[in-house]
Design a protein around this nucleic acid. Structure first.
Lengths: 358, 358
DNA sequence: CTGAAAGCGCTTACAG
DNA sequence: CTGAAAGCGCTTACAG
């Protein structure tokens, strides 16, 4: 077993050199005799020396650490992207020997003070923030603090900072166009809470696509729900209770679409036949719903790595405006969409009970 | 806006005191005049002073940071518990002003060197490790390094360290008993890769329950698959191809159960009627499968907080053996289980195509 | 090419 | 009750 603490001092004593020579040898300074450097490196290996990062960072005046701000607003379980994002971020940071910190607060207010503390206490050199609000106080704070950051998503005005996003507006246009091609005209939309920019984007896509397809918006066809399946179920229920229920429903998230499918089935409609449903996210789990969910897939396998690269670039002093990346979502057709049934849609099957969690 | 750097030195100069007095005033030392302390605190507030944690930690010789080792073995997306766990951990740590670091490696080998580096470089004072192997080299390493840790799960010999686990053996016994009550005798088991201790535990539960119910193990009734739905689907397919296919299948994870449901449907069996399926995890998403999945629910809402509390206690010097906690899983019945059909099970429905992701 | 020294921003015995 | 000083383990000008 290696003995407890292998510091520069110990190494230096062991080698009959000074701390400063050892440090420079290890850090690749060119003014060190190559023979000396080799001796130092070997000794460092033998003693299992690992430079104390705390001391190093204090000396450098750089925390070499970035923080991922965990989404706290909604059910975290409905956000399977988090683990994947963290892996990608971590991959990028580990190569530089930087650390990835988790920032977690219970409210936006707490989150602001967390950010302030992390920056002013010198613990963090940059942030990644997901799913921003239309007008996001966290972003304003980080700008005030002049702390580098990159946004996973965008806000209303996103010209001045680095971001990585998927084009939600275009994606929903794609979904509407697809439904129109299938003959649908009564197309409804279940949106996410409107404080989120992505909710706005997706809603805009819906509205724009209606116009482009010469359809007019039917009162009551736009519902808003929280991210959960229950939210989607309730909202879909409202749609079905309308005097003229829609023949197709687009949901702003897959979770909500799961709920919409449940609502349809429990009222005796066959999703994908009587009423089409299209989700948004591309959760792999959607392959297992009843019927399997047609959805707009977000290509987010690389989001974490891209965000990490962008943030490191910004920290290195590059212009954040040069790091803005918009990805496209694409339609994956499973079984929850289908051609319009020309006859009037009425529940024909007997109403089945579906089990849901309490 | 607060001016850039409010250090102890700046504060002290501002107040006409020394750094050491200011430091002690802020840190609640009793030998400070209360009036002075009040002055200092007010000034600190006004200047937006936040103690530099890097310096503090260097001085204290304690990183005040713990690391969560991300599972890297399987599809991270199939591990929705990660985000929840991180939140719980973070909650506990934030209160103490400790940091939560993410450790991520691509292999166990890399992970070992990561652990070594994090400990020896003084960046981390403890670890949380999930889903241990039967004989886990990470645990041995942390023990060798004398670095505090807590295990989310257990290994074969778990007497000497702190852990938090759900009793997988008991859970599967519950599942088998339930199926036996429903009249099933031909009960199969799809296990997870056997290097994981939890796989062993759940398999043991299956075998023990068979014995306790006077059933004998049928050759081919135990399949092993990776965590994915595809794995479960393939394994279930093998079971159905047996000369005497089972009438009930228990899966070691919900993901695998999703695949098993798909396999059954694609071969024309009605899950929950022709063949019962019980999963393990309690993913809320299981309410949306076809049919909704009956499953053993792990109560893991508090896992993160408990693990955090335990780790902090161990770091504080408490005996790890005193921090071992075994939770019970419970059965949530949805629609994928049902009474044994006494007649011979044959696919009667025409074979339907199910869509899966590529 | 190597060494002696100052400094990063804290904490904490030790004086007075 | 407050101050002067040493130390945590590094980095990095500055000498020689």
């Amino acid at each position: 077993m290696a003995q407890k603490k292998a510091s520069l001092k110990v190494l230096a004593a062991h080698l009959g050199l000074t701390v400063s020579t050892v440090s420079r040898a290890l850090n690749g300074y060119s003014d060190i005799n190559e023979q000396t450097r080799a001796r130092v490196k070997r000794a460092a290996d033998e003693l299992g020396y690992r430079p104390n990062q705390t001391a190093r960072r204090l000396s450098l005046g750089a925390p070499e650490t970035i923080c991922y701000l965990m989404p706290h607003d909604a059910n975290v379980l409905a956000q399977p992207f988090v683990a994947q994002l963290l892996q990608g971020l971590s991959d990028v940071l580990t190569k530089r020997n930087w650390d990835l910190l988790i920032g977690n607060a219970e409210s936006y207010k707490d989150e602001l003070s967390l950010i302030d503390r992390l920056v002013k206490s010198g613990r963090v050199g940059g942030f990644v923030v997901s799913r921003p609000l239309v007008n996001d106080p966290r972003i304003r704070l980080m700008q005030d603090l002049k702390c580098p950051f990159v946004v996973h998503g965008r806000t209303g005005s996103c010209a001045d900072y680095a971001w990585y996003d998927v084009d939600g507006e275009a994606a929903v246009v794609t979904a509407v166009d697809h439904l129109v091609e299938l003959g649908h005209e009564k197309i409804a939309f279940i949106g996410a809470p409107n404080q989120y920019q992505f909710s706005q984007d997706r809603l805009c896509g819906y509205q724009r696509a209606l116009v482009e397809n010469g359809l007019s918006e039917v009162p009551g066809y736009v519902q808003t729900a929280d991210f959960s399946d229950e939210g989607g179920e309730v909202a879909a229920g409202m749609l079905l209770d309308l005097p003229e229920p829609p023949t197709a429903i687009i949901c702003a998230t897959d979770s909500m679409a799961f709920g919409a499918l449940a609502a349809l089935r429990s009222q005796g409609f066959a999703p994908g036949e009587d009423v089409s449903v299209i989700g948004y996210d591309g959760l792999s789990f959607g392959a297992h719903t009843n019927p399997p969910l047609t959805t707009m897939v977000q290509p987010q396998a690389h989001a974490g790595r891209r965000l990490g690269d962008m943030l490191l670039s910004v920290i290195d002093g590059e212009d954040p405006k040069k790091h803005q990346e918009l990805q496209k979502a694409y339609l994956v057709q499973r079984k929850s969409d289908g051609p319009l049934r020309r006859k009037e849609v009425k529940p024909t099957v007997s109403v089945r009970e579906e089990t849901h969690e309490t």
